[in-house]
Design a protein around this nucleic acid. Structure first.
Lengths: 346, 346
DNA sequence: CGTGAGGATTGGAACGATCAAGGGGGAGGT
DNA sequence: ACCTCCCCCTTGATCGTTCCAATCCTCACG
């Protein structure tokens, strides 16, 4: 029946000190130590000082599991990690994830990665039911993904990076980058450079993102009184498709510049130019979208639209915090402005 | 004094069912439900069946926090996420992280990301003390990072992606890719193509990785009876440095091919070639290292050494599992062979 | 038919934190 | 002197799971 005396543990190496250990050593109760950590303003200055110094001495950190169990909060955010497709220049994930991790840390959250299983819903569901995460950050709502609808129905806290294109009645918070504005920047830049026949290579018509970006091109051309007919192509997001589309446009519409919906497509254009001995920048201008490593590093450099991913992360975390503080808060969307990074290709 | 009857909870939406709920409904004890989940072989077939179907009905998932608290295991792996530097073509993180997440899931682990704070040790320490993770995966031991030494001293379970170059007496498990073998592949490939003056552009002498990779170049040249003197440069890992080094070598040593320690440097070489109107592949061959997006997508394509990151992840997880199963297991290192992806630049 | 062996199942305690409610004591008002 | 209030701190209960030891059941065997 002999209960282990807490004091006996102090010697045991490898045994992390608990709140009770700190309490005993500081001569206060467990709750007081807890308050010292979570609500320091409740303690008298002298007591706080004493407790904190013991915490320091013992190297105490609250046990996450115990805290999570009691508070029903994990202080973890789930993120489904979809890496860049091989063969594309998509560059968002790396930078975004880093920003998200940084921002989350400041907000007291950790980022838990998971991969989508065969059944997408089950991964989310399992994490949620088991209380492993407090909420989710959902990216790639690009493709009109079903996750958002599913999570919303389940009343799970989540913030989307990407607008709910296909569900105009969606009520979840989201953060997105104004692709149309980015492409408008790019197009205006080319107009300013004196180009009058500016072509567009974008995604298929079914892509909301593609059409949104395209609208920026349309708008600036219209505002500038420049032609757009016959100057647009809509293709798959691959280098090969961009190359073919560029070749066709060069043959049929003699453009002097290309604006592309992605760096991948822009690289396709560069291929097509190289095929004909044309020089990017000098002979034909090219602008991409995403500011990928490839855009930054290829000889000459590729002018590209850069998404403010750091700020996206900040807004996402802010929205998620709001959501967790007030579960049924009114939803809202945040639209951020991208910038244009000018390099040798224009 | 009225205790809430468990049955009362069934109606409450939003309240996740607990083990006790399942037990009551299945007419067994909590422990039996626990066994059904964790040690099904202990139950009689009929009982197991019954319990599992109730679990299914109720949509029960064990509460992670409670389980972690009791077992002192979090089933989470910590990974310090260092994104690719802007302005370089380093491409390892994205692919590796994805593979790690996938492999971990199969092994029953989740990946927890964190960012290195000002004090590197404190981030690791806090996660460890608070029991947020069971172990770590440490990358970037490239720079002879102090984390490994610190973690080892703390007897924290961790596996390094990267050899303990600077600590030959290190006893932790590690997984690495044989850079020398990769560069040897690349050099042999160029020799086979008929090149006899093959230059090397690598990292500064202090870089163990750089010297390792360089040794692959040396070895193949020696084996082939080809010259190496005057054909090597050691510079910063930037495009600009690669460009300058290539220019200098072209002027002074008239090489017909370049092998580089990174795609970043190789892109610098491509710049230098472009500066002089030389065509990569046709006039001068170039091989990079890392198979970055830029290597894959630039016009012509850049031949590059590709690390088997998927397999690295598998080995890392396996090593970590072993470590967690037997804390003081003898350490071991795993060295994997990279492959060469041949593209237009050679 | 009792009995022991061994597998299946159970109840109580514990993991380490927070919540909710309950004191002790000094200051201030009556 | 007494009551009240507020501040600071303590005590007991609880979150949902697993560990441990004990109990129940089943069945073969003497």
């Amino acid at each position: 029946m002999a209960r282990t005396v807490p004091a006996a543990r102090h010697g045991l190496a490898g045994q992390a000190p608990t709140l009770a250990d700190v309490a005993e050593r500081a001569g206060v109760s467990r709750q007081t130590v807890s308050n010292a950590v979570n609500n320091p303003e409740l303690l008298r200055a002298a007591t706080l000082q004493r407790v904190l110094s013991v915490i320091e001495d013992l190297g105490y950190s609250p046990n996450r599991a115990a805290r999570n169990l009691r508070t029903r909060l994990s202080h973890q955010i789930g993120l489904c990690f979809a890496p860049a497709q091989e063969g594309t220049a998509n560059a968002t994930m790396d930078r975004f994830v880093h920003s998200l991790v940084d921002t989350s840390r400041e907000a007291g959250y950790h980022v838990l990665l998971f991969a989508a299983a065969e059944d997408p819903a089950s991964s989310y569901d399992e994490l949620l039911r088991s209380n492993a995460v407090d909420g989710f950050v959902v990216t790639d709502t690009f493709a009109g993904s079903p996750e958002t609808g599913w999570l919303a129905a389940r009343r799970a806290p989540f913030v989307a990076f990407g607008r709910p294109w296909s569900q105009p009645d969606a009520t979840h918070p989201w953060v997105d980058v104004d692709g149309a504005a980015g492409v408008a920047l790019a197009t205006a830049h080319l107009v300013e450079r004196g180009h009058s026949r500016i072509a567009w290579i974008g995604f298929h018509k079914g892509s909301f993102i593609g059409e949104d970006r395209r609208s920026g091109w349309c708008r600036v051309l219209a505002e500038s009184g420049l032609p757009s007919t016959g100057l647009a192509a809509r293709v798959d997001d691959t280098v090969a498709a961009g190359r073919e589309a560029a070749a066709a446009l060069l043959d049929q519409a003699s453009p002097s510049a290309f604006v592309c919906a992605s760096d991948t497509l822009a690289l396709g254009v560069l291929h097509a130019l190289a095929d004909r001995g044309l020089r990017a920048g000098a002979d034909i201008s090219v602008v991409g979208f995403d500011d990928s490593q490839a855009a930054q590093l290829i000889p000459g450099g590729l002018t590209s639209v850069r998404q403010p991913l750091e700020q996206v992360a900040v807004e996402v975390v802010a929205a998620l915090q709001g959501l967790l503080a007030i579960p049924r808060a009114p939803s809202s969307g945040v639209l951020l402005e991208p910038s244009l990074v000018v390099r040798g290709s224009s």
